[in-house]
Design a protein around this nucleic acid. Structure first.
Lengths: 190, 190
DNA sequence: GCTAACCGTTACTGCACTGTAGCAGTTCTT
DNA sequence: AAGAACTGCTACAGTGCAGTAACGGTTAGC
């Protein structure tokens, strides 16, 4: 029963979501007005597209997690051995995570709407880790829940890490190598 | 030139800080009134002890980081080989971090007042890691800044990890082993 | 080109929170 | 026991923000 939005309205929605991501990344408590300004719109227009401030957060969560799920799917982890699959999915995830610093890795943005997507992502990750274990990459005694937790944390830290060459943007391939290496071997020699 | 507080006032200050830690741990944006209620006081009394809401946060940061610095000092890391020192300091830090879930590991609570304490802690950690490297625990090629970042993240995750036996409280020794093992060897076999 | 949807502007309401003040009763200190 | 410090209570001013409404001008879609 939902009329499709007009093209300009659609653009506004995009602009709001992207601006919200940028603004909230540096200030979680930012007002709707700050978001509107960053989007090049007025506050009233924002309220026309999103009935409440929380609605913006929800939309943000859905967008980000959807994009994340797509990135994971695009990595096609089932079609390669666990090591390369892990490396590849890490790279893809880092790319999208770089664009959603606020929403992802911020429990505040966990809403019911995005919960099922998140569960799906979680299951996929656990599945890949289980395969990694069966292929001998991960110790048999390892607690996979803990490994997943550490993996997520490493992804987060990799994004937070200051880039080696500030001008050219982060080298996601190198970061993916760093994350997987650290996850599997830690900081110790070998 | 500061008159010492009366005993009851001193107790109020304590109660406020502890309550603030509890309340803010679950809701970063909690109001002064919520904090007051949790402390068993009224809002006006809170404002008598802390001129502004930010002043509470500052006091929180100082308290927590001071306690953290003491915990690190108590570990006496210089007096044992790096591996046992790392294990020991990890255990101590986890204990205090468990009591300051909000303040520590929340950049929001980083204020100028606690900055120097934090710098000191940071330096001590880096020093220990450098020694660990010189003793062969950490790979020569490793980026110590990255290792420190990962170490902090692991501490954070260890605190967030659901306890194995919920009733008896977390087993900090086991957690310390988990953290150091993961830091040095990752999730892989060996 | 006509219509409907969209946006900016202005203005208003309502709410929640911060910070302050005065007073009366209680608790510490000596 | 007396005075000072402290707390609870009530009340108030000020602020910032969310959300709503109406109007005139602009833009997209058929």
């Amino acid at each position: 029963m939902e009329r499709p939005l007009r093209a300009d309205a659609e653009r506004s929605v995009r602009a709001i979501i992207e601006a919200a991501e940028r603004v909230l990344a540096t200030d979680q408590g930012a007002s709707v007005e700050q978001i509107a300004e960053a989007a090049g719109l007025t506050r009233t227009t924002v309220h026309r597209r999103f009935s409440s401030r929380q609605a913006i957060i929800d939309a943000l969560a859905v967008s980000a997690k959807q994009e994340l799920a797509e990135a994971i799917a695009a990595a096609r982890t089932e079609q390669s051995p666990a090591l390369v699959a892990l490396h590849r999915v890490t790279e893809y995830v880092l790319r999208t995570k770089g664009r959603w610093k606020f929403t992802l890795g911020n429990p505040l943005a966990d809403t019911s709407a995005a919960h099922e997507i998140w569960a799906e992502i979680n299951a996929a990750t656990l599945g890949l880790l289980a395969r990694a274990k069966s292929e001998g990459l991960i110790a048999q005694e390892a607690d996979l829940e803990w490994v997943r937790q550490v993996y997520y944390a490493l992804l987060h830290e990799a994004i937070a890490k200051p880039a080696d060459s500030p001008e050219v943007g982060p080298d996601y391939v190198a970061l993916a190598t760093l994350v997987t290496d650290t996850l599997l071997h830690g900081a110790g020699p070998q």
